[in-house]
C-alpha cells in the first residue's frame, strides 16, 4: 500500500528561523487522488505546500516522492521531478505575456505531460489573450494562467494554494471543474482552501491543520461538521 503512494511525508517540521511553523506532519497522496488541506488563516497550509518544494524556511523530517527522498533538494530539481505549485495569490510575472508565463512552466518542467494545445482546449478563454501582459488580465484569467504555468510543467503532483481566493464563484466553479479531469489523468492533487465546504466536496481525503499540526484527517463523510469545526478552530 505504502509503495503506491505518490507522495509520502513523515514527521515533517518546518521553521522560519526560531519559529516553528509546522510540527511532525504525516501526510500522503496517491496518484489520481485529490487531497484537501484545510485550516484557519496562519495554520501553516502555505508553509506546508511550499516546504514540499523547498521554498519556505527550513524543513526537517522526510518527504518521499515516488519513494525517493526529496527533502533538501532544490526547488528547481523538485519541480523537474514532477511536483508543481500553483502559488497563493497567483504570482504571475505581470509584465510578461500570457504565453511567456506559460512557457516558463514548460521550460522548468518535464515536458511529458500536458501540451499548450491541450491547455488551451481546457481553458479556451485564455487562447485569445496569449499576447497580453499577464498583469492586464482579470483575477480569474490570471488564476487560469497560473494553473496553466503549473500544468505545462507536466507535474504528477499538483499543489494548489487557495485558488478560489478573491475570485467570483462562477470562475471558481470553472477552475474546480478541471480538477477531476486532472485526477482522471492520474495526477495527485493537493488543494489548500479556507472554504471548507468547497474543498471537502471535491476531495477524496482531507487533512485539517491547526497551529502547524494535523488536527484531523480522513474522508470527508467520516466526520460531523462539529468534528471538523473543532479541528479547524481548536478548543477555545
Amino acid at each position: 500500500m505504502q509503495n503506491d503512494e505518490l507522495l509520502q511525508v513523515a514527521g515533517m517540521s518546518a521553521f522560519y528561523g526560531q519559529f516553528r511553523a509546522l510540527t511532525e506532519i504525516d501526510f500522503s497522496v496517491a496518484p489520481g487522488e485529490i487531497v484537501a488541506v484545510i485550516g484557519a488563516n496562519g495554520a501553516g497550509k502555505s508553509t506546508f505546500l511550499r516546504s514540499l518544494i523547498n521554498h519556505a524556511g527550513t524543513a526537517t523530517g522526510s518527504v518521499r516522492f515516488h519513494g525517493t527522498e526529496i527533502l533538501g533538494k532544490s526547488t528547481a530539481e523538485i519541480i523537474n521531478r514532477g511536483i508543481m505549485l500553483v502559488p497563493e495569490g497567483r504570482r504571475l510575472f505581470p509584465s510578461l505575456t500570457v504565453d511567456e508565463n506559460l512557457r516558463l512552466g514548460w521550460e522548468v518542467g518535464r515536458r511529458d505531460g500536458m501540451t499548450a494545445d491541450e491547455y488551451f482546449s481546457i481553458f479556451p478563454a485564455i487562447a485569445g489573450l496569449r499576447k497580453r501582459p499577464a498583469g492586464a488580465l482579470s483575477g480569474g484569467q490570471q488564476q487560469m494562467v497560473a494553473f496553466g504555468r503549473a500544468l505545462l510543467a507536466s507535474p504528477q503532483l499538483l499543489l494548489c494554494d487557495e485558488i478560489s481566493l478573491g475570485l467570483a464563484p462562477l470562475v471558481v466553479d470553472e477552475l474546480y471543474a478541471v480538477l477531476p479531469k486532472l485526477r482522471d489523468r492520474g495526477l495527485g492533487i493537493v488543494i489548500v482552501e479556507q472554504d471548507i465546504r468547497r474543498a471537502l466536496k471535491v476531495a477524496d481525503r482531507f487533512y485539517c491543520l491547526l497551529e502547524g499540526r494535523v488536527s484531523l484527517t480522513g474522508r470527508p463523510g467520516e466526520y460531523t461538521r462539529a468534528d471538523v469545526s473543532h479541528a479547524y478552530f481548536g478548543s477555545h
Binding site: 511550499r50 521554498h55 526547488t75 528547481a76 505549485l85 504570482r91 510575472f93 522548468v108 504555468r149
Partner: peptide, 11 residues
C-alpha cells in the same frame, strides 16, 4: 521582475 516568484516556479 520577481526573483522570489521565479525561484518558486523553479527557475
Amino acid at each position: 521582475e520577481a526573483p522570489a516568484t521565479a525561484a518558486l516556479v523553479g527557475l
